[in-house]
């Protein structure tokens, strides 16, 4: 079953547009949603949550069309925006007491368990929490109302490496039972190398690739060649950088010919992201 199914999503702004965004997230898995700042991650997430009106396309969550079943589905979605804070001068207790009334499956025991596990003191004010603690608080809320799909926008940005690692471990534990699915956007690609099952890469409003992590990386090769070799294969490259020894470039695996006598290696996610953004600059 698909936890999230996005088909041909389009949204046009004056200076930016989402173009035919489609991807699927299988239930019980973690999908990392990567892209540079301004690539369209938050716009996509806001469209999924129906916070902005899409121009066209369809969004299915847990098999149901989002627009038609918005209220019902919002009971099953937990969302957190890493960089937006709400009612920061209120205590956790006050905020939770207000929020829990909205959810019919709210479980107080689960909530207190998560507070304990995440070391959250309910008498603290939101403003007193560290960035990591705020994300954990959002998670505690989402999990206590029985959310099946967690949509997290940049949950790890602004966290120190220890807190990030800790959070990623929690993500992995959550999906273990196969009930919960997580879509989280980030530009910190090392997070995904640690915990994502699927990767969706968005660049300039378009989905470049969405697939299982190893397969995603395997789609590309990083090639290292000498300057004189560059002209012959330049057109096959997605983008390249020149250096004093020659050049380094990214290429689709299918375009790579082993007979070229050029060193090749598997790129990491960061390199894929960087070369794609370079490609765009070449065309400007």
């Amino acid at each position: 079953m698909l936890a999230l199914d996005i088909k041909h999503l389009n949204k046009k702004y004056e200076h930016f547009q989402l173009k035919d965004v489609s991807f699927q997230l299988e239930k019980g898995y973690i999908m990392g949603f990567i892209g540079a700042n301004g690539a369209g991650k938050t716009t996509t997430i806001k469209s999924i949550l129906n916070l902005i009106h899409k121009d066209s396309g369809e969004i299915y969550i847990l098999g149901k069309e989002m627009l038609e079943h918005e209220l019902e589905l919002k009971q099953e979605i937990g969302s957190a925006f890493g960089d937006i804070n709400f009612y920061t001068r209120n205590k956790i207790k006050t905020l939770t007491n207000v929020i829990k009334k909205f959810y019919r499956n709210w479980n107080d025991d689960a909530y207190y368990n998560y507070l304990k596990r995440f070391n959250l003191n309910e008498n603290k004010k939101i403003a007193e929490l560290s960035t990591g603690m705020k994300v954990k608080y959002s998670l505690a809320i989402a999990l206590s109302h029985g959310a099946k799909l967690l949509i997290l926008d940049e949950p790890t940005s602004g966290l120190d490496p220890v807190a990030r690692d800790n959070l990623l471990d929690i993500f992995q534990e959550l999906v273990e039972d196969g009930e919960i699915s997580i879509l989280f956007s980030t530009h910190i690609t090392t997070d995904l190398e640690k915990c994502a099952d699927y990767i969706t890469f968005i660049d300039n409003g378009q989905i470049i690739n969405s697939s299982e992590k190893e397969e995603f990386i395997d789609t590309y090769r990083l090639v290292n060649g000498k300057e004189e070799q560059m002209d012959s294969i330049k057109d096959q490259l997605i983008a390249y950088k020149k250096n004093s020894f020659g050049f380094t470039g990214l290429i689709h695996t299918k375009d790579f010919d082993p007979s070229w006598d050029i060193k090749s290696a598997l790129p990491n996610l960061e390199e894929i992201m960087i070369y794609f953004s370079k490609k765009e600059n070449l065309h400007v």
């Binding site: 949550l49 916070l51 209220l71 009971q75 937006i84 709400f86 009612y87 929020i99």
Partner: peptide, 14 residues
């Protein structure tokens, strides 16, 4: 300042 709009919009309400 409290981002009430987005806070409220994420709740299951019309």
């Amino acid at each position: 300042t409290q981002n009430d709009l987005i806070f409220t919009s994420m709740l299951p309400v019309t």
